[in-house]
């Protein structure tokens, strides 16, 4: 059984066809890239997968169950975590709290347990805290646990965001342009981090990225889309040499 299967998914906004008949099947364990020019519909695909939009046509099944009609938080608790193009941390809460809140789906206590501080509540909070510390430790962020994200440099914020997504313990991690806005040293760090995550966790990673260096050095398989439709797919070498990809990125006229 495949981990993620997207079947002829189409999304229209009014008259605009943002995604048309997009298909992908991930078996689990891959590191896949999604590239395409600006406005090609890449983020829309991620929004569809994470449950923000409901596809106009076609379906998404994750781990064998259909995600149609599920709210984003339900999709997330099934095991799909994501990051955002522009970092969306809760900037006025500590890094620790950022990660704690991401454990919402496994808190397992009701609001009355919180009022009464029952054993269930205390156990659950303890567990959540342990998970958060583990994740901070693993991601080398322990020293920043009580900092506010807005006071951290951009590269670290990106790392916190990935840590937050990872603390959900997802089976599928969606990275939306993780290298956007990073300087070249940070990009190196990011490549290492993503590879490390992929090697050390039982996880499938699917990333949107513009920087070819990142995509080509990380991804085993790449899909390229333009105007919502798939125009090429294959290994990094195949994509690099594909004339349609070059055309989509650089335009028609040859010099």
């Amino acid at each position: 059984m495949s981990l993620l299967k997207i079947d002829e998914m189409t999304q229209r906004f009014g008259g605009l066809q943002a995604v048309s008949k997009f298909e992908i099947e991930l078996q689990g364990g891959e590191l896949v890239g999604l590239i395409g020019p600006n406005g090609a519909g890449k983020t829309t695909i991620f929004n569809l997968v994470s449950g923000f939009y409901q596809p106009t046509e076609g379906g998404i099944s994750f781990n064998g169950s259909n995600t149609a009609g599920l709210k984003p938080h339900q999709v997330t608790s099934m095991g799909i975590a994501r990051t955002f193009q522009n970092i969306r941390l809760w900037h006025d809460m500590t890094v620790m709290d950022n990660i704690r809140i991401a454990q919402h789906y496994r808190k397992g206590y009701s609001v009355f347990d919180a009022f009464l501080r029952t054993k269930k509540y205390r156990d659950s909070e303890k567990r959540i805290e342990n998970i958060a510390w583990e994740m901070l430790e693993a991601m080398d962020l322990k020293e920043f646990a009580h900092e506010l994200p807005k006071n951290l440099p951009y590269g670290l914020q990106r790392r916190v965001e990935i840590a937050r997504a990872m603390s959900i313990k997802p089976k599928l991690l969606l990275l939306d342009e993780p290298a956007a806005g990073l300087n070249s040293a940070d990009v190196e760090g990011l490549i290492k981090l993503v590879r490390w995550i992929h090697d050390n966790f039982d996880i499938t990673i699917w990333m949107i990225e513009h920087q070819m260096k990142v995509v080509m050095s990380l991804c085993q398989y790449i899909k390229c889309i333009d105007f919502g439709a798939t125009i090429a797919e294959g290994t990094p070498e195949q994509i690099q040499n594909d004339p349609t990809v070059i055309k989509a990125y650089l335009g028609d006229d040859t010099i």
Partner: peptide, 28 residues
């Protein structure tokens, strides 16, 4: 007790970024 629990911290998360809250498994 409410605002110091992980449950109640979801309230602050909604205040600061509702979309991120929803995506990070908070039932907004």
């Amino acid at each position: 007790r409410y605002i110091s629990s992980t449950y109640g911290k979801g309230v602050n998360a909604i205040c600061q970024d509702e979309i991120a809250a929803e995506i990070m498994s908070v039932n907004t």
